[in-house]
Design a protein around this nucleic acid. Structure first.
Lengths: 145, 145
DNA sequence: AAAAATTCCTTAACATGTTAAATATTGCTA
DNA sequence: TAGCAATATTTAACATGTTAAGGAATTTTT
């Protein structure tokens, strides 16, 4: 009656959690010094990459659920890391942009972040690294799937 | 000054989150019918697989942080899915075991769960599936790393 | 143009993630 | 054996994940 399922050590959801734990260790170390969370870092990176965005698009690109983004945006506004203004043509939309203070956090940590990424490539091998990203994207619900 | 970092679409932490989202969709559907959470399902599966365990080992194998397990175990006890007794030789330890009611949830859903796993293998290819698990284990902090 | 449906965002409520502090038990050491 | 360190678990506090409900603005329908 047992053993129909793969052992938990070979379970895809658990493997994804564990891999994420491993990946986040050095990143958390970096962010601890800056005083922002991993999610806030993602918001800043997406805004840096794409420029001002409406909240929906931002949440989507930063892989945050909408209610989470609402709260995170509130605290980031208080810290002065982002600005948020109503869109003039569609007043339902909130347009969020990175501020100078937010940009400074990105700039101050880019080198360190690049170093961390390089560390992963060295640790598991560049080819494995790229292939892992390819395989993961196969599971991404927003892509071909 | 930009573009030192990979684009967020090619970021390993974000790719791991998105992949997990995709993987969890059919599993959440299954669990919604049973009334237990994804974490509670992991606890049941680990207990089914290994038998009674002390809380530390259980948390480790279910990839849960200790405080999370404490709360989850409380609610699972209330539901009658697990039992929890003090270890007699070391009264600091709490030994947690699956109950008949908990076992029934596993038994009632094994076939569905197996189907979901098969779905992933078909969707991305069996070889890719196995290789993905191998690559993910390279990032697991509790393993070789 | 008024009513209904849709879209975008916020709020609410509860579970979990995360870090730190507190508690209880055991083991070690002077 | 009294006292201190180490271990196992719980509790606390706050951020985030998750689902559902609510509110405001826009679009669609009639």
């Amino acid at each position: 009656m047992k053993n129909k399922l793969p052992p938990t050590t070979r379970s895809l959801p658990i493997a994804l959690i564990r891999a994420r734990e491993g990946v986040m260790i050095p990143i958390r170390e970096m962010l601890a010094e800056t005083g922002i969370s991993e999610q806030q870092w993602r918001v800043l990176r997406v805004l840096d990459e794409h420029g001002p965005l409406d909240a929906s698009t931002l949440a989507d690109r930063a892989s945050l659920l909408f209610p989470s983004l609402t709260r995170i945006a509130q605290s980031m506004r208080k810290k002065g890391l982002i600005s948020q203004v109503q869109d003039k043509t569609d007043r339902r939309r909130q347009v969020i942009a990175i501020t100078d203070a937010g940009q400074k956090i990105i700039d101050d940590n880019v080198d360190h972040a690049v170093q961390i990424v390089e560390g992963f490539k060295v640790s598991i091998g560049e080819a494995n690294y790229e292939q892992l990203l390819d395989l993961l994207s196969l599971l991404d619900p927003d892509k071909s799937d």
